[in-house]
Design a protein around this nucleic acid. Structure first.
Lengths: 233, 233
DNA sequence: GAGTGGTCTAGACCACTGT
DNA sequence: CAGTGGTCTAGACCACTCC
């Protein structure tokens, strides 16, 4: 007998991973059906199902009814990245968080922002610029537009004490969102705010959240030079 | 009666989401225990459990034995990003993929790479530089080091026809990996290869994969200017 | 110690999809 | 139309953790 006890779905997952990593099951191979594995491992089909579904979620297996389960030919692995509240991210690094409101106006957005907010007509929108600091040093610059109709409460919040990032996360639930990552050269404004050189490469996150079919807010987060976002796979 | 039929765990998940979004259940609130919700929805506890676990995975709920389930105070949402094979990513955009090997040598790595490869001693390592193009234009530059011990097969592959990115994904399964995103200014080499200006802000992905305690490969993917990586939340 | 979520089981029916 | 995964159920036991 070779096997250790295989009882939990995590055990099953581990065994399947071993067989893939040892190349006993290669990319493209058809795996035994759930009932067969259940027999082999001496457990319920439900347990096998849980394990395989979990692996399919990470992109390592491809499952289709009737067609069965295969090792993914192109294992497009999926990485989960946590989108933290900036204050949390800074404090978790053991640094002192501080925050400074740069500007807070009610204004007509430029066309590109109006498009990103999916506004039906030209309406005034809350525009907030703020700087987040770690140990007193500029960490990230937040440039945000908030749709008054979608988040009326936001109009009465005092954003000198609390960042819009934090307030929105805690008070504006959303039904969907999108996020984009890119790189940009520091312009005049960014270099002053982040106290870096003009032209420096900056990491940029653009975020947008929706409540049903209405955009709540869109924001650019422009990080100081040398910022890295990382995660495990 | 208000409710539509709630049968599947997805239905339960939707109902829970609705109650959170309508602020009937607010951040920090304790939710009814699984057995209670099962009664209310008229389904098995297992179904409730599946729905809540799924929501806990996305970071919207926090669950602890004995303490119960709460709406996350700081809903640190988790975004899943797919790490695609470059060829796939380009072709999915409807562009023509091509590839050109720049350099392919067996060499002693500099100290920082040696550290990233977690090499016990100073050993020779396969160093590959390659350019991926979309519609004939530079798309991303791949700068990769491959540990011969961890992936001996890679030593005999003809990387003029096939990118290391693709070959490794298909032939070198890994047990863990890490990935980092950042921004960097184009240097002399990057500007020539990617035909952009020196100093341009470039999006950079650094990846590393392991087989057990041995690093298989580490790579820098340096994208052309204006590259954006995006996903939904 | 007691309460809550985590998981397993055996059996059942359903939904999709390849042939 | 038949085979495979997707999901539900009811009941059970276990593991963790708060009090």
């Amino acid at each position: 007998m070779t096997a250790m006890d295989i009882n939990t779905w995590q055990d099953v997952q581990g065994e399947i991973l071993d067989r893939i990593n040892s190349r006993r099951w290669k990319p493209g191979d058809l795996l035994p059906k759930e009932t067969e594995l259940a027999q082999e491992f001496g457990c319920a089909r439900t347990t096998i199902n849980r394990a395989m579904q979990s692996l399919a979620d990470t992109g390592l297996l491809e499952r289709r009814r009737k067609a069965g389960t295969r090792v993914a030919i192109h294992p497009v692995r999926k990485a989960t990245i946590s989108i933290p509240i900036i204050q949390q991210e800074i404090e978790q690094k053991g640094l002192v968080y501080s925050y400074s409101l740069t500007s807070h106006v009610f204004a007509t957005p430029p066309p590109d922002i109006q498009a990103r907010l999916a506004l039906p007509s030209q309406e005034d929108v809350l525009h907030i610029k703020a700087l987040h600091l770690a140990d007193g040093r500029p960490y990230v610059f937040e440039d945000r537009w908030i749709n008054a109709q979608a988040a009326p409460d936001a109009m009465n919040v005092d954003f000198t004490m609390q960042s819009p990032n934090k307030w929105l996360v805690e008070n504006a639930p959303y039904t969907k969102g999108d996020i984009a990552f890119s790189a940009a050269n520091a312009g005049e404004m960014e270099s002053k705010l982040l106290s870096c050189n003009k032209g420096d490469a900056l990491f940029v996150i653009e975020r947008r959240t929706w409540m049903n079919e209405m955009v709540i807010t869109t924001a650019q987060l422009i990080f100081s030079p040398r910022y890295r976002m990382h995660t495990d796979i």
